[in-house]
Nucleic acid binder design. Sequence first.
DNA 1: TCGCCACTTATAACGCGTTACAACTTTCTC
DNA 2: GAGAAAGTTGTAACGCGTTATAAGTGGCGA
Lengths: 266, 266
Amino acid sequence: MGEDTVRRARTGALADHGADLAAEPSAGTGGHTTKEAAPPRARGRREAGKEERRHRIIQAAREMIRETGRTGLSMRALAERAGVSLATPYNLFGSRGAVVLAVLEDVRDFQARFAQVRNGDPVDHILAVVDLAVEFYLGDPAFYTTLWREVFSVSGEVRTAIYNPRRDEFWLGLVNDIAAAGALREEIDTALLLRQLDHQFRSVMLDWVAGDLSAGLLGPTIKLGYALILCGAASDEARERIAHRVAESQRLLREAGERAAGATPS
Amino acid sequence: MGEDTVRRARTGALADHGADLAAEPSAGTGGHTTKEAAPPRARGRREAGKEERRHRIIQAAREMIRETGRTGLSMRALAERAGVSLATPYNLFGSRGAVVLAVLEDVRDFQARFAQVRNGDPVDHILAVVDLAVEFYLGDPAFYTTLWREVFSVSGEVRTAIYNPRRDEFWLGLVNDIAAAGALREEIDTALLLRQLDHQFRSVMLDWVAGDLSAGLLGPTIKLGYALILCGAASDEARERIAHRVAESQRLLREAGERAAGATPS
DNA sequence: TCGCCACTTATAACGCGTTACAACTTTCTC
DNA sequence: GAGAAAGTTGTAACGCGTTATAAGTGGCGA
């Protein structure tokens, strides 16, 4: 039984595909997405050709996802649109899922925007960042719902690539700011706290992506969860302020819900 | 190919392994497999034959999922094992995803167990129920990780079928008990609170299913989230008690994490 | 009992993701 | 420039989920 048919020789390309992702034009941030194991000397015409092909494929995939939704992204159609052979996306990325992930990572330039947000109170700050992230996705909902739907449906490695160390560091910084301001109880572990916040964020996103949550409720729902969790970890001094944000989010959510319910009796 | 379309004589060991899970045959209800709500009059031999075929298919699917994981559940193999034609599962269920959902609904008998749990403090009560639910899944992890992985990867209607009104009612009762005991602030909307708890639960399950969270951390992680959120909604009188549960869950989580990290440096 | 009809069956087909492999073309090395 | 190395291309194939269709079968009403 030729069980060696797995033969992940090609998958090697999947490991080093991160190199070209960050090199996307719009990004500008130039962050390294994953491990950069590729030999740094190999800057020849051959490598450039590969990179250009990779870029064409990502570009074509992005366009096709935006135009037709997930169902439109067949590997044969993708290859044709990108002007490459059917085998080439597999050579360069390894699988369809890897291509989708590459598209997602290609457009992640939150960090630049996040840097703009400045706020006195660290709790207000993290909630403002949440708003910003939500705005980002709502800026192109057709694209991102499709993309995230794909992402959720693929194996775990894909999600771990999204929730990467760089991202963790950024958000952990925000939580640590809150702790440093004395707004959290002494015994609270900020890393564990962040994971709870992440769970909240991700699960609400899943609702949105699945169509169970309207765009208007996305931000308020996430912020209510954040406020509740933070309030649960708050010190005595900071609690009242955060509790106020809980009540505020709840009010927003109820109003938006009633408005939506009145508009679409779905 | 079809040389020996054996009818497989439905191995009498049918109820053996599944006994602990699905022992409850949902007798009186008449198996509401889908939203069909089978007309109560149509109890002919023809309908009985259909139901028996349905049962054979679900049973075969359950066995195959347990034995081989998701990859083993191909429609052709399923049809062969169930002793039906390839077209029959499509006639009876409609799609592969619908079969998987039917398997999931077939084994959901939490409620009976939940009724056993009695506890003085309503907060302790809901956390005990969480423990029970986690235990339920951990009782057959190979089966439930596969099943939930499938569920997460299918369209939204599947999840809404899981989070159904009956389930909501049950959990909302638990949350309302907490409110009735005066442990929550006046302004807290229990329905919204429940949704935040659900998000927590579901997202942690997703982690477990994806292999990002070990079995030992599943319960503590969920309970930490629950405790944090409840603490964030707690009234002044109840807060200290709940904050204590936060600290306790956090300690458990840290210890379990360190133990796991020491054992498997993965 | 007979004929209708609902349903299953067998089978072929479609497009899909993925893999394999023999050419062919381009780049690198000497 | 010659030859080696690398990579793409075209194409065939596999198993998959799903659909369509003709032929068969057995329950049910008359």
